[in-house]
Structure formats: C-alpha cells, structure tokens
Design a protein around this nucleic acid. Structure first.
Length: 153
DNA sequence: GCCAACGTTGGC
DNA sequence: GCCAACGTTGGC
C-alpha cells in the first residue's frame, strides 16, 4: 500500500465538506499539474492519503482519506464554466485525471505546518521542501505513521 | 498584501 | 532548445 498527501484550500473544499458529503466520498478533481496528475494515476484502491489544508491559518494536515476509485478522466477540465477549465482537454483527449476518495478520519487534533517542521523524522517530507508546491505527492510509510500519531493527539 | 519559488508559454 | 515573461501557489 502506498501513502500520499493531497492539498486543498479549505475555502474551496475542506475536510468538513468531505465529512458532510454523500457517502463521505468525493472525486478529487481540478489537479492541473502534470507531476501531480502522474501521482494520481499511480494511486491504487486502498491507498491512504492525508488531507492537507493549504492557504489558510494555520495550514495543517487535518485527516486521512482512502482511495476508493483509481484514476479516470477529470471531466471538469472540459467544462468551460469550471474554475479549472483547460481548453486542451476534451472527452476524446481528457489530459487530466482524478480519483475518488473516502473519508477515513478527521484528526481530533489537526497537525499544523509549523509542528511538522519541528519533527526530525519528517525532515525529508516533500511538503516541507523549500518552494514545494506539489498538490499531490507520496509520503513514506514511516512519515505517514509519524504524522498520524501526531494527529491522534 | 507581499513575495519567493515554481511551472508554463511563446518568441527567437 | 534557450530563456524571459508571465501566471500560480502558498507561506508568512
């Protein structure tokens, strides 16, 4: 099983919105970066991912989700009314992919970015790399355990 | 709101 | 293929 981290701006889609969603499941659409897309395509059903709130105060890992459907075409890319519309994409040439994720747990104690930075075991975490902007990226099993323990208090 | 870092675009 | 200009991300 692989582990991942997924970023979302809570103003756009928060873990609370996922908690309230039908079946506590959502499609993770709107990724428009090739490297992030390729990670989406590498995901397998049963993989676990952190849900990270970015561009908010404080930025934090707020919970865990499970991949419940592997990559399929992101139809929002060819919807001109969508914020992430991409004229390159079409049903014949989807370009972008999404997966479905289901809520596993909302952390009783969100783990803020500043705290992650203070943990030695997380020194190599992609999220903490200088200038890192990747909205989807892998996390090692050890990093996953460490962060999950912090989130459970 | 600022700005550093990054990715993409497009002229050459 | 280079690289400058531009747009975006995201922490602060």
């Amino acid at each position: 099983m692989q582990h991942w981290l997924l970023k979302s701006e809570p103003d756009c889609f928060s873990i609370d919105a996922l908690r309230k969603a039908k079946k506590q499941t959502t499609c993770w659409d709107g990724v428009r970066n090739y490297q992030a897309r390729n990670f989406l395509r590498a995901m397998k059903v049963g993989d676990r991912a952190f849900f990270y709130h970015s561009s908010c105060d404080p930025p934090a890992v707020v919970g865990v989700v499970e991949i419940v459907r592997e990559a399929y075409p992101d139809s929002s890319a060819w919807n001109p009314d969508d914020d992430h519309f991409d004229p390159k994409a079409s049903p014949e040439n989807p370009v972008w992919s999404m997966v479905d994720v289901k809520l596993v747990e909302v952390f009783p104690r969100p783990v803020p970015l500043g705290e992650l930075r203070s943990v030695k075991a997380l020194a190599d975490l992609e999220l903490l790399r200088r200038g890192s902007r990747l909205s989807v990226h892998p996390v090692t099993a050890a990093e996953f355990r460490t962060i999950q323990q912090l989130g459970c208090g």
